[in-house]
């Protein structure tokens, strides 16, 4: 009886997670926003870090999130990516469909004992496919000459480039970038700017969280702090 109850509880949890993932289906109206965030609130460690955040994101747009340390930039991106359940509010739109947002956090999910190419191939296989080939992605981030090098001998900046190359492996509509330029040199930042511009030109959209200056002159700013936020 209890075993069945346990099973049912896990099943219910699983169904909840699955239905949340599958509920949002992409709609193809061209002028509709890719993402509509409304009244988003989130607490971490007993403290409310986000409250009443709302904005919409259309094709080709870039939102630059800034704010002091602890203002909830990372939490906001993780909520949009579906990695964190918000305490209140909604995130809706075609970009909410599984595989349509791609989140690059501050950690580099790079395995030191795999080569650059093996890391990229693994990431490509984890997704649903439909992106660019791993070799092309590495080339775009300036890693073409290091495809067969074990990732453990890469520098921090090169590992960051490798993480960012993951963006090109999937056809996701919306990129969510958390401090993408950390450890990047000027060439790395320029390549980042180039792939972001290319993604936007194809109708994709980008949300970047940063506290440093980034070369995105036409970005819409979203400043997080205390109280309600909209843009």
């Amino acid at each position: 009886m209890t075993a069945a109850f346990t099973a049912a509880a896990f099943f219910a949890l699983w169904c909840r997670a699955m239905s949340a993932a599958l509920a949002a289906t992409p709609s193809s109206a061209p002028d509709e926003p890719l993402l509509a965030v409304h009244g988003l609130a989130c607490a971490r460690g007993g403290r409310r870090v986000l409250s009443d955040v709302g904005f919409t994101l259309g094709p080709g747009e870039l939102i630059l999130i800034t704010g002091p340390n602890g203002s909830g930039k990372t939490s906001l991106l993780r909520c949009i990516a579906g990695l964190l359940a918000p305490d209140a509010g909604t995130v809706a739109g075609p970009a909410r469909a599984r595989g349509q947002t791609l989140h690059v956090g501050h950690a580099d999910p790079v395995k030191p004992h795999l080569t650059v190419l093996e890391n990229l191939r693994f990431w490509a296989a984890l997704g649903a496919g439909g992106g660019r080939p791993p070799e092309e992605a590495a080339d775009a981030m300036g890693l073409a000459a290091r495809l067969d090098v074990p990732a453990r001998i890469l520098s921090a900046g090169q590992r960051r480039r490798l993480s960012l190359a993951r963006l090109l492996l999937s056809p996701a509509l919306v990129w969510l970038l958390d401090e993408p330029a950390n450890a990047l040199d000027t060439d790395g930042v320029a390549r980042l700017a180039a792939i972001v511009a290319d993604h936007r030109a194809r109708g994709g959209a980008v949300i970047v969280a940063t506290h440093g200056p980034l070369p995105f002159p036409d970005a819409r700013p979203l400043v997080l702090g205390h109280g309600a936020v909209a843009c």
């Binding site: 460690g45 007993g46 403290r47 409310r48 870090v49 002091p68 602890g70």
Partner: peptide, 16 residues
């Protein structure tokens, strides 16, 4: 305890 922790966390965040 939860209320005290939440108050402390908020105070720390506002002080930062």
């Amino acid at each position: 305890r939860a209320r005290i922790a939440a108050a402390a966390a908020t105070a720390a965040a506002e002080g930062a």
